[in-house]
Design a protein around this nucleic acid. Structure first.
Length: 420
RNA sequence: GUGGCUAUGGCUCAAUGGUAGAGCACCUGGUUGUGGCCCAGGAGGUUGUGGGUUCGAACCCCACUAGCCACCCCA
């Protein structure tokens, strides 16, 4: 056993995973370009208070999952547990409200939550995140779903499911919560302890409950969509109509609640197969009050976060392979010190001509160098020995058919370019 | 934070109380400058850590740690 180990819930991203990451990032860039989103990156560290205010004091993220610590000057910092609060902070701090609205932004990077790791869940994970800032038209709620769907389709996903709901707004949400409490209180005795707790602390969470005893009660529980105010009801109706218009199938799931306090009106999740019990690949919604909460002027916004590691798991599950990495197809080997100098010069030339090449170093036997060429998956092994250097040539071995050709060093670049 | 399962060389695993093995991977060699296949040889483990039981522990017991999965919650 090695002395130093990974921190719990953190992963090394090894070579087998990298082609997926590269593939996914490329598709994200294509998609965001197509939809007109600009990249905006924020720091990994923020004042802890930003998340307490933004995400909400009573949320699990703030209450028990944030990596929080004192800086050397005593300031309370947090590793960002989500993107939205930081992006909204950047929006306000940099005066981005002066840009044409709505502002469409995206970002990607690591987030940190001190949770117990399990399938598809890590303490450091990466999300692709987009936000549309400054627009309350439900058409943009549909647009972000369209972005997600375009990305997932271009990655090769199939069998994804879209679930939507509305969480109302400060005008109607409390009324609904009261209705929920009124409904469950007479049955409180039948609820399992966890759900009794929820009834006290966060009644909406009961809707999420997987407790068996609670299920029959949930069937007749009031739906928030029957308690929305006119404004929220209108928004939800249009949201669904626009989804219908673009023929994006969805299921209204009254039990989607989402764990962050800032959501208003639209919430949604996209689920995929093959992920175990953590099967949400994309989750988001609308947060019309967040920017005000953070000290900006009222600015309705909508967005989502989407877990990159879960993409990789789901892609593997579906048997979708990313393109191979474009590693060099040429190796340069040598025999003897004079040839080594020539090899070093040659390999510089190849790279300057944009021909990827790797040296088989170490002054080892010829056999070992060819072996190295083989293990590097070279298409061509370029061999320089005493004879070749004297003749101003290189021996080029085709590693597929084992044919060897003597090529003048002056013609080698063109010779390779014709064949690679 | 809670629960279940697991922990042996780089990887996948074997050995269930009596001196730690295999396959893959790795290194060297099979004569003079030729890879993949084959053959031969080699290196690599104080069996996650700490304690206990025993004449003797990879194996039994306890604790801790880590991993996986699930709950909670979420991407």
């Amino acid at each position: 056993m090695t002395k130093y180990k990974r921190i719990t819930g953190m992963r090394d991203v090894l070579f087998d995973d990298q082609p997926y990451c590269r593939y996914i990032l490329a598709k994200i860039q294509e998609t965001t370009d197509l939809f007109g989103y600009r990249r905006l990156d924020t720091p990994l560290l923020e004042q802890a208070n930003l998340f307490v205010r933004g995400v909400g004091e009573g949320t699990d993220i703030v209450e028990k999952e944030m990596y929080i610590f004192d800086d050397r000057d005593g300031a309370q910092l947090a590793l960002r547990p989500e993107f939205t609060a930081g992006i909204m902070r950047a929006f306000v701090e940099n005066g981005l409200h002066t840009l044409p609205t709505p502002l469409r932004v995206w970002t990607v990077g690591p987030l940190f939550r001190h949770e117990r790791p399990q399938a598809g869940r890590y303490r450091q994970h990466s999300q692709f995140d987009i936000e549309i800032i400054g627009e309350q038209d439900p058409a943009v709620d549909v647009e972000i779903i369209s972005v997600a769907w375009h990305l997932f389709t271009s990655l090769g996903f199939y069998g994804l499911r879209l679930y939507i709901n509305s969480t109302g707004c400060p005008a109607c949400k409390p009324t609904y919560i009261q209705a929920l409490v009124d409904y469950f209180t007479p049955h409180a005795g039948k609820l399992p302890p966890d759900d009794q707790m929820r009834l006290q602390k966060n009644p909406l969470r009961i809707l999420d409950s997987k407790e068996e005893a609670t299920q029959p009660l949930l069937e007749n529980a009031p739906h928030i969509t029957d308690h929305l105010c006119d404004d929220c009801d209108d928004h939800f109706t249009k949201f669904k109509a626009y989804l219908d218009a673009i023929e994006r199938p969805y299921v209204v799931d009254y039990r989607i609640v989402r764990g962050l306090d800032y959501y208003t009106k639209t919430v949604f999740e996209i689920k995929a197969d093959g992920l175990g019990s953590q099967d949400t690949i994309c989750g988001g919604g609308r947060y019309d009050k967040l920017i005000e909460e953070l000290g900006g002027r009222p600015t309705p916004s909508t967005g989502f976060g989407s877990g990159i590691e879960r993409y990789v798991i789901a892609l593997r599950h579906l048997g979708i392979e990313p393109p191979a990495e474009p590693l060099p197809k040429v190796t340069v080997s040598y025999l003897g010190q004079p040839a080594k100098l020539a090899a070093l010069q040659l390999i510089e030339t190849l790279r300057s001509e944009n021909i990827g090449a790797i040296l088989t170093p170490g002054d080892r036997s010829f056999k070992a160098q060819l072996k190295a060429a083989n293990r590097n998956d070279a298409a061509f092994a370029i061999i320089l020995g005493e004879d070749e250097v004297k003749a101003g040539q290189a021996t080029v071995r085709n590693m597929v058919d084992s044919q060897q050709t003597a090529v003048n060093l002056t013609e080698l670049v063109d010779w390779l370019k014709e064949r690679l």
